[in-house]
Write a protein that binds this DNA or RNA. Structure first.
Length: 253
DNA sequence: ATGGTCGTGTGACGA
């Protein structure tokens, strides 16, 4: 089973990109983030043989699952804060597997309320994933984590020291997820530095390959045992009018 | 380089 995560930076602006990606790569499950609008064009995917489920809001955020197999929604928001209206979390059973798609808050600038929200969101995510671990529910979580786990996930760590995607507290919170027993799928197969999933639109970042690795798949132990590949597919970042992110792809036996 | 680029929705803000 091929499962992919991709921050598309607006589904309206990237509809043709997503359809082209599906046609050329035929994933079983495509998780997308940053839909950036209330409307989700479900029929566009249904007519080419995919089920969909989306969690949206006006203008910002938004996550969706596009799947060849039926989608049984388990949760459409991260538990433990009823006042949180941001569309960043969707959890489902697909083809016998628990699958979670997240758009973790960016958190800049730091310090400030946005960074506080990011850290509290990560604490709530830890709590949810711990519950799944405690209940022996195998799962795959993918998405835009807005976290660089290590120095080698950017070009110049010094430039990022105060950034919400790299601050010590952020990486500690990410490691606490790993320490639940989860596997960073990409690092099973590729331990090289500067393997990026995002390049800013500004200052020729793509042309200079000045990117960051912030899109991830984490797998619980039973799922990690079934993992057979994980790659970052840079091709869609080179298309015309691209998203600033590119897809990360895993294969599960 | 005290800039630079996108997208939403048509302002100002978010990334």
């Amino acid at each position: 089973m091929k499962i992919v995560s991709w921050n598309v930076n607006s589904i309206k602006a990237r509809l043709d990109h997503v359809k082209r990606y599906l046609e050329e790569n035929s994933p079983d499950v495509l998780m997308i983030q940053e839909l950036k609008g209330l409307d989700f064009p479900a029929e566009e995917f249904e007519t080419i043989g995919y089920h969909t489920s989306a969690v949206t809001q006006k203008a910002y955020n938004g996550v969706a699952i596009i799947s060849k197999h039926p989608i049984e929604i388990i949760l459409d928001k991260l538990p433990d804060d009823d006042t949180d209206e941001q569309a960043r979390y969707i959890e489902a059973n697909i083809n016998g597997a628990r699958v979670i798609n997240i758009y973790l808050p960016n958190g800049n600038p730091t310090p400030g309320s946005k960074y506080d929200y990011k850290l509290s969101w990560m604490a709530r995510l830890y709590s949810r994933l711990k519950t799944l671990c405690d209940n022996d529910t195998p799962f795959i979580i993918g998405g835009d984590f807005n976290v660089m786990p290590e120095d080698k996930d950017c070009h110049s760590p010094k430039d990022w020291e105060q950034d919400a995607l790299f601050r010590t507290e952020t990486r500690e919170a990410f490691r606490s997820l790993i320490n639940l027993g989860l596997t960073d799928a990409f690092r099973v197969f590729n331990n090289r530095a500067e393997q990026y999933s995002f390049w800013d639109y500004q200052a020729g970042a793509w042309q200079k390959d000045n990117g960051i690795r912030i899109d991830h798949f984490l797998l619980s132990p039973v799922m990690a045992d079934k993992l057979t590949s994980c790659t970052i597919n840079k091709t869609p970042r080179g298309w015309n009018k691209p998203s600033d992110h590119t897809p990360i792809e895993i294969t599960i036996a």
